Computed example of a mutant assay.
Amino acid sequence: MKIGHLVESLDPHGVTAALVDLAAAGPPAGIELVVVALAPSGDPAVAAGLDRAAATSVELNVAPWDPRAVRKVVEAFRAQGVDLVHTHGARADVVGAAAAARLRTPAVSTLHHIHDQPADRADRLRRTAKTLARKRFMTRTIATSALQRDWYHRVAGSTTGLSVIPDGAADPGVGTPEEAGRLRRGLGVDEHEVVAVSVAPMRRGQGQDMLLDAIAEIPEDEPLTVVLGGDGPLRPWLESRVSADDALSGRVAFRRRSDPVALLRAADLQLHTTRHDTMPRVLVLGQGTGTPAVATRVGGIPEIVTRDTGALTPVTSSRIADDLLRMVRDPELRARRGAAARTRFLDRFEAAGWAGRLADVYRSALGHSDAPAAAELDTPEPLHAGRV
């Protein structure tokens, strides 16, 4: 099956990073990917990754509300001979549904966000209309979490035509003592130091400010070093705050250009203290490296991190500090949760399994005789659906 994925751009920090992993895992499941981006990204990383996985990528230059968008997408997909269109994102949903209709192919859409707090009644009506249109024009909708399923049910009234399939990831593998040693030498700490890593993007709502508040509560004699990896608009402010505080500057290091997976493989703990999130990919990757997590109990995070694989904390710095300190002081707990995290990743999130579940959806939408019936792919209704 040749599946045409329509995305906004080949942004390495967006959904297309996961599509690179899907392209590599797809062939054994009978899937070949064609990824069409509505707008150029200016970053060649995703296109290069798709090329290595023998997938095709096409970058269009379609401005928002360009009336030629549907025609250009139809031409791109027709040239590649796609069998089904799979859309990701608001604009891609609209353009992709119209393109699939012209191509006379089924259309599948993945929900990547939810809008649970509309600004006013008009906004609520617009979002409800979009969801009902999705239900009408898409052969199937995929939610990546039960949280999204429940939101969809509240808006659409049922989960008919909806499957819950979490995004997967290629197996990052567990870290080695050599990797851990290199990170510690780079930080100037000894082998007994517990190294905790946060690789969340440094932007509003991701909670690094709250994490710094929690770290400030940890006693100075605890063997803990925290690494903030990655980048974002808040990085200069975070660096300034750390440098101005002696307690933080002695314990917190920044690694802007480090590979987040390499950091996770070398770490003892992963920290993800966001104020809101749906299904953060970095937590999935952390589980793949066998790294236990301390994460806030928000959004879809409890569908990734469980009590067996890490600590789920309320969104308060004091509770984050308490759970972090417990993990620092208990190496056996870290080891047990790390092993459970690795097992959970392989069972639930590894890319081959993800590709297989998507292949069932595609084969069903295309009417293959050996495919599951559509009703078999529907997710169960929420537990208390009648009370919504």
Rank of each mutant, 00 (worst) to 15 (best):
I3D: 05
P12L: 11
V15K: 12
L19Y: 02
P27W: 02
L33V: 00
L33R: 04
V34Y: 03
A39T: 14
S41R: 00
D43C: 04
A47M: 14
D51L: 10
D51R: 13
V58M: 00
L60F: 08
L60K: 09
N61W: 14
D66T: 13
P67G: 02
V70M: 01
A76T: 02
F77I: 09
V82R: 03
T87P: 10
H88T: 08
R91Y: 03
A92I: 15
A98H: 12
A99M: 05
A99C: 02
A100Y: 10
L103M: 11
S109C: 13
I114N: 11
Q117W: 14
A133D: 15
R136G: 12
F137Y: 15
T141A: 09
T141V: 08
T144V: 15
A146G: 14
D150Y: 02
G168L: 05
A170H: 06
G173P: 05
R184V: 02
G186F: 12
G188C: 02
D190A: 01
E193S: 13
A196Q: 02
A196I: 01
S198H: 07
A200S: 01
R203Y: 08
G207E: 04
L212C: 06
L212P: 10
D213Q: 11
A214Y: 11
A214T: 12
A216E: 10
E217P: 05
E220W: 14
E222W: 13
L224S: 09
V227E: 01
G232A: 09
R235T: 01
E239V: 03
R241K: 08
D246M: 11
G250V: 01
F254V: 08
R256Y: 10
P260E: 01
V261T: 11
A266K: 03
D268S: 06
Q270V: 04
T273R: 07
T278P: 10
R281P: 13
T289Q: 04
T289V: 07
P292F: 03
P292E: 05
P292R: 02
V298K: 07
V298E: 05
I304T: 02
T306S: 12
T309M: 04
T316I: 11
R319K: 04
I320T: 06
L324R: 11
R326T: 10
R326Y: 09
V328N: 05
R334F: 13
F345S: 08
R348Y: 15
F349V: 00
R357W: 09
Y362Q: 11
H368S: 13
S369G: 15
A373Q: 12
T379C: 00
T379N: 00
P382R: 05
L383S: 07
A385G: 08
